[in-house]
């Protein structure tokens, strides 16, 4: 038992693998955000028009807002079930830094939501008359933006997990904080259609990702300690 390295890295991988395993055993919860993403995107042609020029004009915003909402609706799964069955208090009392545990959980959440949303986004983009040669930029913005959405969202879930009905409140807390990511992500996709240079937005998205990667685990840990009292 002694002598085995028991550091933060093993804690991270242990928690990450457990959450991935749990997600795989809950297939429906894995598919729900994706189905939501597909349905919301397909509502726009139905509600607006099937004219390909109109669709192309709204495509960046539609794809980004739908991905953002799908992520938001899936956020509760980061901490909700752990809170309800008492695992969360065990994690908080674990000897490992809570921020590392949070990071492991958020990484697993992103792999089971944001990453999958990013992977199916090209198919949806094509359905909105999106030019195939520009799909790369769309995927890049989502790849850089959705982890930040999960990270910021984890603060909101940590703050509301102790409340019986936190759903709408969570949206109220989190959506204003999502605005910069939406602005940079959607505008990058939009400008890439017009063959403009979007490196600036991609750098900004990356900067926001690095910033939230360093700061949000601490905020989320502090929030968890408060709501578990």
């Amino acid at each position: 038992m002694e002598g085995v390295p028991n550091n933060a890295v093993t804690a991270f991988t242990t928690i990450f693998r457990r959450d991935i395993k749990l997600a795989l055993r809950h297939r429906s919860e894995l598919i729900n955000p994706l189905a939501f993403f597909v349905i919301v995107v397909s509502l726009f042609p139905l509600g607006l028009s099937t004219d390909s020029r109109t669709l192309l004009q709204i495509a960046p915003a539609v794809l980004w807002i739908s991905a953002l909402l799908a992520t938001m609706l899936s956020l509760e799964s980061i901490f909700r079930s752990d809170y309800e069955d008492g695992s969360l208090e065990q994690l908080v009392l674990s000897e490992h830094p809570l921020s590392v545990i949070v990071l492991g959980k958020v990484a697993a959440h992103w792999c089971t939501t944001g990453l999958l949303l990013t992977l199916i986004s090209p198919a949806l983009a094509i359905s909105l008359a999106f030019p195939p040669q520009k799909l790369g930029i769309l995927v890049w913005t989502l790849l850089l933006g959705t982890p930040t959405l999960s990270l910021i969202g984890s603060i909101g879930v940590a703050l509301t997990v102790g409340l019986r009905r936190g759903g709408i409140l969570l949206a109220l807390l989190i959506l204003p904080l999502y605005i910069p990511i939406l602005i940079f992500g959607a505008s990058a996709v939009d400008m890439s259609i017009d063959d403009l240079d979007v490196a600036g937005q991609l750098y900004l998205l990356a900067a926001l990702l690095v910033l939230s990667l360093t700061l949000t685990p601490f905020a989320t840990s502090a929030a968890l300690r408060v709501t578990l009292e």
């Binding site: 457990r18 395993k21 749990l22 055993r25 809950h26 079930s81 309800e84 069955d85 008492g86 695992s87 208090e89 065990q90």
Partner: peptide
């Protein structure tokens, strides 16, 4: 509360 995951 037991702190166990029902799905494991």
């Amino acid at each position: 509360r037991d702190g166990l995951k029902a799905e494991l």
